[in-house]
Design a protein around this nucleic acid. Structure first.
Lengths: 195, 195
DNA sequence: AAATCTTTTGAGCGATCGTTCTAAAATGAC
DNA sequence: GTCATTTTAGAACGATCGCTCAAAAGATTT
């Protein structure tokens, strides 16, 4: 059996506590002291279990990406039969997720602003990735004839990304689920129609 | 004449340098050391001229609000004859302003994330103010018959605010003026049409 | 020139930052 | 019981944070 003193804390629970803090306050504004307090451990344990602050944050981002709050975009892409339904679902889910009272408001990738260049680039790339994801789905929709050949997948992808990120900011600023749902419905007006 | 040793630095230029730093890096990520370096002064002079860091930031926000980058929304409201033209102009101007190579990307009020509660609330209120501003203009447009009576000024105002803030985020993430202009045009598809 | 007033300078304050280290505690192996 | 191993607790490291202060410097007034 495994030798040595056994750990006294739940690693997953500690990671969840760290996620909440980073999500709420951002990367630099969350101190190691804040983290150890919320995670119920001492600095030595944190560094032994997660490396350093940056490694912990990376792990938080990864776990977030696999959680419902970070995965709903891909989930909608898979489940919804048409591109229209997928984007509609994505925006409606965003309205609900970003205002979920169980979690901090908005999208972690949009909220947890980081001054550290390495972390900032990492997060920016993840945010930009949604443009490519959206574009691919829209290109498929155009090729399959769901949207007109004149529609521009890249432009639409950039637009929906901007709306989604704007909704995150609105949620951070106190927008309700109802308000964001209305915004989502209005945003769908840009969906390309047959000429 | 005024007695004592005369100041050796241009207050407005120093404020502009501080604005650029806060805009680029945010409130807490900009240190007094960064500021004194960029402004070409020593801490004592900064505190004598501007109070403390928070007061300097407040002054930066105020100056920003009177600058083209902060005032273009109200300018469009005044100059454009119709609400449609005003919102169209606002989004197009945002696309240009947020990607102006002469200034940091995005909107200072969206970019300069602050952990300090007082500063965060101050900025959040300023961001939220645009919803009310938009709503008033849209209500007028509805009363005057420019948009249908069934249109909801509040929902539209929230939508345009989300788009604008999303465009700021996109600009921070490297979106070009052309991409944001396309986003602006697509966003106008939500403009209410006669039923 | 002397006195007065204001600004500049640069050191340095206490607090907090991320991080490391040492010693005690708690386990399995022998 | 003794040793090896791992985690714990808590002090403490150097660096940086926002900010202050005493002394020097540069100007006007008398």
């Amino acid at each position: 059996m495994r030798r040595g003193r056994p750990p006294t804390f739940d690693r997953a629970a500690a990671l969840a506590a760290a996620t909440r803090l980073f999500w709420q306050n951002g990367y630099e504004a969350t101190s190691i002291h804040d983290l150890t307090d919320a995670m119920g451990i001492r600095p030595g344990s944190l560094y032994a279990a997660f490396g350093d602050k940056k490694a912990l944050f990376n792990e938080v981002i990864e776990a977030y990406g696999r959680s419902p709050a970070g995965e709903f975009v891909w989930a909608a892409m898979k489940r919804e039969p048409t591109a229209h339904d997928a984007f509609h679902r994505i925006l409606l889910d965003a309205a609900a997720m970003y205002t979920d009272p169980e979690t901090p408001a908005g999208n972690l990738l949009c909220s947890a602003a980081a001054a550290d260049v390495e972390v900032a680039v990492y997060m920016r790339d993840l945010r930009n990735a949604s443009v490519d994801t959206f574009e691919k789905r829209l290109t498929t929709a155009r090729d399959e004839g769901e949207i007109p050949a004149t529609a521009d997948p890249r432009k639409l992808a950039a637009y929906f990304t901007a709306v989604m990120h704007g909704m995150s900011q609105r949620a951070r600023d106190g927008a309700t689920a109802a308000e964001l749902t209305d915004t989502a419905e209005l945003a769908m007006a840009a969906w390309p129609k047959a000429a």
